[in-house]
């Protein structure tokens, strides 16, 4: 299995949780290929809404930045994992930035899915999606429901709703996270 992990947590925040998540990723490497990207060390531009990737240079983002490596990993992956903290009640903006850029991996064309219009994946491989939330051991139910609905809606576009999860990470439970990724 190939797993792409995109970590939005800055180096100086949640160091214990980050170390444990990295260890969980390392433990998966014995049997799987894990490509871990730390967003805070990468140069990634926000989507400008120019539609170059949809109508001018199909499939290719106008920015040739570090997102290119994440694209190349994602289109080969079985699972794509986002690692984020919560800010303003939702996934942090850095992770949102990378998520928006992922629309270069979709066609502009639409298909019907679950009675709604959705974009068609450009690539054959459609990774299942996971969201790992750090630092929210005492989150409220509404936040969790919103995030679950969000991941479901993203998966409608990215993998035809074939699989997604939201995992609230807790210290000392790296193995549970690794298991959830494998069993997705």
């Amino acid at each position: 299995m190939i797993i792409t992990m995109v970590n939005g947590i800055a180096e100086n925040q949640y160091p214990d949780e980050s170390n444990e998540i990295v260890s969980a990723a390392e433990s998966l490497k014995t049997e799987h290929q894990v490509n871990l990207f730390n967003l805070n060390k990468l140069d990634v531009h926000p989507c400008s809404g120019c539609w170059t990737c949809w109508i001018k240079e199909p499939g290719r983002c106008v920015y040739d930045d570090d997102m290119t490596d994440i694209y190349r990993s994602t289109v080969k992956s079985d699972v794509l994992i986002w690692i984020s903290q919560i800010k303003a009640g939702f996934v942090q903006s850095d992770i949102r930035m990378a998520t928006e850029r992922m629309f270069a991996l979709l066609l502009p064309h639409m298909m019907e899915l679950n009675g709604e219009m959705h974009h068609i994946p450009r690539y054959e491989k459609q990774p299942k999606l996971g969201l790992v939330i750090v630092g929210e051991s005492e989150h409220d139910l509404e936040q969790e429901e919103i995030l679950k609905e969000y991941m479901y809606r993203l998966s409608l576009n990215f993998n035809k709703a074939s699989g997604n999860f939201v995992h609230y990470f807790e210290l000392g439970k790296g193995k549970e996270l690794a298991d959830e990724i494998i069993n997705l």
Binding site: W54, I55, K56, E57, P58, G59, R60, T68, Y71, R72, T74, V75, A104, L105, L107, P108, H109, M110, M111, E112, M117, R122, Y123
Partner: peptide
């Protein structure tokens, strides 16, 4: 008949001269 609804995109892609590569996979 999804092509009826997607025609608008194809017209835009044609205008940009990119119709032949509309299904390209540059990151594969």
């Amino acid at each position: 008949f999804p092509s009826i609804f997607n025609k608008g995109f194809d017209i835009m892609i044609k205008k940009k001269g990119a119709y032949e590569k509309r299904f390209d996979k540059p990151y594969a």
